[in-house]
């Protein structure tokens, strides 16, 4: 326990501002690689969103007259809300870049390459932290349905007597969501203590 407390203190307390700064500079060791990754990710998001929009339009067109009574049997909450969750996630991605990468929205005292203090101050506002948590909930639902569905969409899942069971998807969604949600939750709980900025310490 003492070991864990010490470890906790060492990462979050003493070292984290520096470690996160090191990580931020590490990302910038090769700007072409960083920009390559950014462009690939943005491209993937754009393709994903365009495909989702087109499919939604086709789906709506495929049933012009709705049922007066419909009783879905096995559709999960995640599957029902995946389109709304996707729009929310798109808004979140844009906000997150403006908030934490560019530091132009809801980012008081933003300092380039000082992610620790940017996160600390950026998530100090409960509304902002709440939005991060909401987006992570949407991400969890997206992953819960998506991880299970993607293996069937690609046709690589093995035949199963219970094809609607999705243990792997539950595990992945839980791990990712808990991991990401820990940051805004930590900020709300006050786990981010004030640290001297490594950027100013280095004399940038």
């Amino acid at each position: 326990m003492a070991y864990l407390a010490r470890f906790w203190d060492s990462t979050i307390g003493k070292k984290s501002a520096e470690a996160m700064h090191d990580y931020a500079t590490l990302l910038r060791t090769s700007m072409p690689v960083l920009w390559g990754a950014r462009i690939a990710l943005i491209g993937a998001v754009v393709l994903h969103a365009v495909a989702a929009l087109q499919l939604t339009q086709r789906s709506n067109a495929a049933r012009p007259q709705a049922y007066a009574k419909k009783a879905p049997q096995v559709t999960t909450f995640a599957a029902k809300t995946i389109r709304y969750g996707g729009v929310l996630l798109l808004a979140f991605i844009v906000f997150h870049i403006l908030h934490m990468t560019l530091g132009v929205v809801a980012a008081p005292g933003f300092v380039h390459l000082d992610p620790y203090n940017n996160v600390r101050q950026g998530l100090a506002n409960p509304l902002v932290a709440g939005f991060y948590l909401l987006a992570m909930a949407a991400l969890g639902l997206h992953l819960y349905h998506g991880t299970w569905a993607v293996f069937r969409t690609l046709g690589v899942a093995r035949p199963s007597p219970t094809p609607l069971k999705r243990r792997l998807a539950v595990a992945l969604a839980a791990i990712v969501v808990l991991g990401f949600a820990a940051i805004p939750l930590g900020a709300l709980a006050g786990a981010f203590t004030e640290q001297p900025s490594p950027v100013t310490a280095e004399g940038h």
Partner: peptide
């Protein structure tokens, strides 16, 4: 329409 794997068809 397209398949979103809700599983309703199977039921």
């Amino acid at each position: 329409g397209h398949c979103t794997l809700t599983g309703e068809c199977q039921e």
